[in-house]
Write a protein that binds this DNA or RNA. Structure first.
Length: 403
RNA sequence: GGGCGGUUACCCAAGUGGCCAAAGGGGACUGACUGUAAAUCAGUUGUCAGAAGACUUCGAAGGUUCGAAUCCUCCACCGCCCA
């Protein structure tokens, strides 16, 4: 791959929110690649992950995919676990301060993060480090010195702080340390390239570069990845929005979740979380635009690709077949929870016992709305004894085999 | 530390003694239509009850009243201004 192609691939899916910045970063990236080639040394690339929960979702894999691209081009990739930054909580993507985690939680989460990351990254070529390694050694004086490189105004100008200020929501002092800590990570590792989401723009472009410069290093190149919308297609994918595709979900589930993503978000999914080259993606989009490819088929290709990244081709193929059977041909799924009918139980009893509705009122509502079927027949009442064993379907996708 | 304002259901938010289980919007859910997409249309969205209705709920606890989300007292938390 020549330098131009490398730059194109590495800049795919990036978003800077500012054309000039993007141009500048692209130019710097090119320069670094050339320089690295000349000197015959790999670039030091990293992305940090704060282990704030146990489950990673597709949104987290965007930057991993980007790291993987660097890895495949022969560069040195560090998967940095933010053991210390997680203690502070990144204010970037929240309108509220994050809950403070204990050191034990952080340690436990960090472990599972690395394991999950290796579904995308090449374990043999990945360094795993924790930022506690160097952040724990900073003294108060060190921290104060770091703070001398920034003004309060710079922080208040940040979009999310500015919003909170405007709305009268609290901004805690400790939140401002986050950027300093992250910037220091970059300096401590003498980073060439830092990868992160658009919410990290400030931390990377302002904090990281400035601190490196202050410490006499060449400022890093920020590769800022776009944000993946969740399954609703609008809000960013995040656990609290309930629109995530967990990377630990089953192949069938992953395939189905990707299929439920609105068309409008397809392009982002292709660019941010697949292994396809910019060229191949263009081809798919052209075909859809020209009408030679059905948008549904483009999405099936996407769902299959994503499932394959995590489960391999065979499982992705199987997931696709299940999907076709279940939803395109309206057959009931092969596997579903089972329930043993007890004497005298009504339809309501079964629905509630199986957790298919939260309360009897909700169940009543579902029946009234013709949302409950037994072997395909709509049930009119819920207070009658359960008619006969069979497949109970509540809504579109909740199934129960009643025996 | 002082002054003022706020806390309503999943979220935002209206409501300042009875007509309040509580407007409106968003979200979620169901049905129709579809490509398990979007858009659109119709409906549901505190719990129990077949229905009438009953019960619990407007930050917490007490109180006034025939009756309180609404008035009073105290407590907790948040914001703004002044230090």
């Amino acid at each position: 791959m020549n330098i131009d192609e490398q730059v194109e691939l590495l800049m795919q899916g990036t978003e800077y929110g500012d054309e000039d910045l993007k141009k500048a970063m692209t130019a710097e990236l090119r320069e670094r690649l050339i320089q690295a080639q000349k000197e015959g040394r790999p670039l030091r690339v990293y992305c940090g992950y704060d282990p704030t929960s146990t489950d990673l979702h597709l949104g987290h894999t965007i930057t991993m995919r980007k790291l993987r691209q660097f890895q495949d081009l022969g560069h040195e990739v560090t998967f940095l676990i933010g053991s210390y930054t997680a203690l502070v909580g990144d204010p970037s993507d929240k309108n509220k301060a994050r809950p403070i985690l204990t050191q034990e939680q952080v340690a436990a989460n960090g472990k599972t993060y690395a394991d999950q990351a290796f579904r995308v990254l090449d374990p043999a070529k990945t360094k795993i480090r924790e930022n506690g390694e160097w952040l724990s050694k900073l003294t108060l004086v060190d921290l104060i010195r770091l703070g001398q490189n920034f003004t309060v105004q710079q922080f208040l100008a940040r979009e999310n702080f500015a919003n909170r200020l405007e709305k009268g929501e609290p901004i805690f002092l400790h939140e401002t340390f986050y950027a300093l800590m992250q910037g220091y990570d970059a300096a401590a590792m003498e980073t060439d390239i830092q990868v992160g989401g658009t919410d990290q723009l400030f931390n990377i472009i302002v904090a990281g570069r400035k601190l490196q410069e202050a410490l006499g290093q060449k400022p890093l190149v920020g590769v800022i990845c776009g944000i993946l919308p969740g399954t609703d297609g609008i809000q960013r994918m995040s656990k609290s929005m309930g629109n995530i595709v967990p990377i630990t979900s089953t192949a069938d589930d992953m395939y189905g979740k990707v299929m439920s993503v609105p068309d409008a978000a397809m392009s982002k999914y292709y660019r941010l979380v697949t292994r396809l080259s910019p060229h191949e993606i263009d081809e798919v989009e052209r075909a859809v635009a020209a009408g030679t490819m059905h948008p549904r088929d483009a999405k099936m290709k996407l769902a299959r690709e994503i499932t394959s990244i995590f489960y391999g081709d065979a499982a992705a193929e199987a997931a696709q077949e299940n999907f076709i059977k279940m939803f395109q041909q309206k057959e009931v799924p092969d596997e579903m929870p089972e329930y043993s009918l007890k004497a005298g139980e009504t339809v309501f009893d079964v629905i509630l016992a199986a957790g298919m509705a939260e309360s009897k009122s909700k169940a009543r509502g579902l029946i009234d709305q013709k949302g409950v079927r037994l072997d395909g027949e709509t049930l009119e009442r819920g207070d009658i004894p359960f008619p006969h064993p069979g497949v109970l379907q509540v809504g579109k996708r909740r199934f129960l085999r009643v025996k």
